[in-house]
Design a protein around this nucleic acid. Structure first.
Lengths: 202, 202, 202, 202
DNA sequence: TATGAATGAGTATTCATTCAT
DNA sequence: GATGAATGAATACTCATTCAT
């Protein structure tokens, strides 16, 4: 196992344990015994326990962003309707989140305020999300599909909150094994499109 | 200061500190020096640090429920329209949450999975919220104002997530001092009513 | 309840609890709740927790000594044989110890060295006991009934150890309800008299 | 210093301190400063303070048993008289106990009932001792050297109590540096043999 | 005299991190 | 690179005692 693989291996074990028992209840001892490595080896790859966690979460954020951006590029904006566009955006988000439920459990849970240790990490992420949703809304406004008079920050937070909650509900709490994400996305759209989109003339 | 008041005093100090620094970074030492009492006194009123936290959160849940229920009784369901009803419900929730921003900060933050210590506490609360929202939706369906074909659990989670996120955004993150909750409620309704309510004939 | 009675009452409750749970595991809280008095009241009668314990044990030592001395006076040394004398001494000791099994449990247990707090108390007691037994042996030597060539300190310790152990065994460990102390005393004498007493000519 | 040696080292330091100041008055801080190790190191070898104490006492019991059993095997029961047998048994016990006076101080002291924490530990030991002494007595009865009509449990407790007391007296209290254990054993036998053994015909 | 709320000194244990091998 | 024994800072909780009422 080379350096790259070993680092990945540690992250995978840590992710599983963090998801199961949380950050504080997961000890370095648990990680090394799960990974089958020596105590000191962890510190060859990570500067400390926080570093493992931050790496995990930032990788997640990075992959998310990349996944969304990549898929966006595949959409030919001229050929699809605004509704189709928003459908893909939401579905792609759900598809991505479904892939790694451990990370959903780590990142999306409604946490009562037990800590402030990683506030910067979360804030950075939250800003990014809100900016992303706002971007889509602004795009929609430019294209004439989204109401001009929406309160941007309110709407972006409403949508983000709704999507996080649903992902956490379906992927972590409910542990539903086979979800029809097409259907779910459609139902989400049925609820939010009428209030956000400009009514279409027939 | 009698027993009742002293217990309340400890809770108030603890709440402020938990909100500022989180549960784990708040020491018993911080609480007693902030409350101006002796170390042992805390343990006259609470069995341990967890107990303070749980009391705080459960009081919050209890007050919330009571506040919502009480205000519900004041609504004369026969004299108000379904839209007015939902307006009051959402506004009352926001009014309640605005009152205690420390507790919003403790209870509503999107927590990355640092702990599993109070999972039961959160789950109990989450179930209650979802049940409450579902109840309102079912009421709406019976009254013919809410679409019959909504996916109940999806909609309830979507609404709860949206409302939590917005409360956290406005009351904790933005720290907006003077908010027009009437206006905010109206804008929330503008977004969600079209997708949930049966279209009204003129 | 007057002062005298109240002090006695506290001692009785403390004795029971010390016997059941030991000194360290018995808390002032246990004593006051058992005695049905207020926390501060204990300190009206005793200067601290140690004082209760010491009073209890010293009372025991004092009563023991008094009991033995008193009963000794009732023996007419000229009219009884040395064997009868030693019989009464041992039996009286057993009778006294049987009366208060709680105190036996407190005072006679073979303690592994968990503490040094009351070393002086125990030493004082141990010296007294050894002196008492030695006194009897010397009396026996003067009367010509006990071997002249016994090792005094060895014999005294051997007898004291044997008697303590048997009392603890019968009164605390075995919790035998109805013991024939006459019979037990006789059996003890059967074992120790031949080795200590001068063989009697017929 | 390897793992084995280090554990032994901690035990030795703890033993000395427990003997000097008792279990409760000996702090972990005392042990580590005496052993010249770090606080955490203790917990690499023992799960807690109790564990150190229990290990110490159980090792003692185990060594005692082993010592007695081993020496027993070296006695050729056919070539020695019953008196010689009992002489060796008692002397070997004394020799063993003399070797480790700290442990005698920990294990053999007459403790007033300050604790109940290690009751099971003591009880196990006491039962073993009584069984051992009873075994010897029964052997004597089979060989025709011990009186058939002795009260077994009384005699066993009497002998055990006597021997404990004498060991504690000589090895802990008196701190006698050079003891003639042959002589002491002989004197013990002079006292107990006549009452327990069947009189020998000439 | 009796009360009981308040006190605060005292202590075992945890666990992330280091560094010599 | 890998190891794992050693480290030591950090922290909640207990419980005998006090003293104002």
């Amino acid at each position: 196992m080379n350096a790259e693989e070993r680092k990945k291996h540690i992250l995978t074990c840590a992710k599983k344990l963090f998801s199961q028992h949380g950050f504080y209840k997961t000890q370095i001892s648990d990680i090394i015994s799960d990974a089958g490595i020596a105590r000191g080896t962890v510190y060859q790859y990570f500067s400390n326990k926080d570093d493992i966690f931050v790496t995990l979460v930032e990788d997640f954020y990075h992959d998310w962003e990349k996944s969304i951006t990549l898929k966006l590029e595949n959409l030919n904006l001229d050929q699809i309707s605004p509704k189709q566009y928003i459908f893909h955006r939401i579905k792609n988000t759900l598809v991505f989140l479904e892939t790694d439920r451990d990370l959903c459990n780590i990142v999306l849970r409604m946490g009562i305020g037990l800590h402030r240790d990683f506030d910067t990490l979360i804030e950075k992420f939250e800003k990014k999300i809100i900016k992303l949703v706002s971007g889509d809304l602004e795009l929609g406004i430019r294209y004439g599909s989204v109401r001009k008079n929406i309160n941007m920050e309110l709407t972006a937070n409403l949508l983000a909150g709704a999507l996080f909650r649903l992902s956490y509900f379906y992927f972590v709490q409910k542990k539903a094994p086979h979800l029809d994400l097409d259907e779910i996305t459609k139902e989400i759209l049925d609820i939010i499109i009428p209030g956000i989109f400009v009514p279409q003339k027939k």
